[in-house]
């Protein structure tokens, strides 16, 4: 394969990006289109719990929630996946058996990624052997900032190999990358190294996902698709907690990549509280009344 010089990735026009974002955020989506969008969002959510305080029971709770979003209102989809730490993968796989909801596991010394390659591979192996369908790895930001792009690239290649059949999402942690040029560069490295998805954030750092960062990543995916013909997925994660914002993300995907990406094979939301807000919006459309969190399950 042709060597790529990652020092030479395209530069990002920040003003242009902000201009496009402001046009996207000023559009409003209503009625039928809004309802379709809301259903689509539910079906794209990776319902996530990544706390030090997680327990088996908490994981069982969110698995139940993933399958039964709001039983009072029949016909709702399930979420796309449940995202947990590797030691909870087995529990999640058991709970979700036969439901079609996938199990994603973070791995590779999440969230910092500061560990040896051996430890990271062992982490991935644990997740995959326990039955994870998807692995969310973190990019080595320290090495990235040192300009050691080869290291970053090789590491992703190794981990992709260890994933086997599981799909690999590479978390760039854009909140630590500094600027949009770096986001673009990290996206290119991850995709060329074999990522099936690129993901904005761990959710542990602020800012997490933002519209401009996501747009830069979507543009990178588009360019990569034109070069190679391979469709890479996108997952903004963290900080997307209301439906209006989520709809704007969908709009951006549709405008940048087209309808082929508008399904949960190629687009996901990493979120824990978004689902309830979407459910509240759906109930608002149905009943006409603004809703309260009190009437929806917490996890």
């Amino acid at each position: 394969m042709k060597q790529i010089n990652f020092f030479d990735t395209p530069k990002v026009d920040q003003v242009g990006i902000n201009d496009r974002i402001s046009r996207i955020t000023s559009r409003s989506i209503k009625d039928e289109a809004k309802m379709q969008g809301l259903y689509m969002i539910l079906n794209m959510i990776d319902l996530t719990t990544l706390e030090g305080a997680d327990t088996e029971d908490k994981v069982k709770h969110i698995c139940y929630k993933a399958m039964h979003l709001h039983d009072e209102y029949p016909g709702l989809p399930t979420t796309a996946a449940v995202c947990v730490y590797p030691n909870f993968v087995k529990t999640a796989v058991n709970e979700l058996k036969g439901s079609g909801v996938k199990v994603a596991s973070v791995a590779t010394a999440f969230p910092s990624g500061q560990s040896s390659l051996e430890a990271k591979l062992a982490d991935v192996k644990l997740a995959v052997e326990n039955g994870a369908d998807e692995v969310d790895m973190v990019l080595s930001r320290g090495k990235f900032h040192s300009g050691d792009y080869q290291f970053v690239y090789d590491e992703i290649v190794q981990i992709k190999k260890a994933c086997g059949k599981a799909r690999l999402k590479v978390i760039l942690e854009t909140g630590e990358l500094g600027n949009l040029d770096n986001v673009r560069r990290a996206s290119d490295i991850a995709m060329h190294a074999g990522a099936d998805f690129i993901k904005t954030s761990t959710g542990k750092i602020s800012p997490a996902a933002t519209l401009p960062v996501t747009l830069v990543m979507l543009e990178a995916i588009k360019d990569y698709y034109y070069q190679t013909g391979r469709m890479v997925g996108m997952k903004p994660a963290g900080g997307i907690s209301n439906s209006k914002l989520a709809l704007q993300y969908l709009l951006m995907v549709k405008e940048t990549l087209g309808g082929k990406w508008l399904n949960n094979t190629y687009f996901r939301f990493g979120a824990s509280s978004l689902a309830n807000d979407v459910l509240m919006q759906i109930m608002k459309q149905k009943t006409g009344n603004y809703q309260s969190k009190d009437y929806f399950s917490k996890d």
Binding site: N289, K293, D294
Partner: peptide, 8 residues
């Protein structure tokens, strides 16, 4: 009506 109907 909105002051009266808002569930929250």
């Amino acid at each position: 009506t909105f002051f009266a109907s808002h569930m929250d």
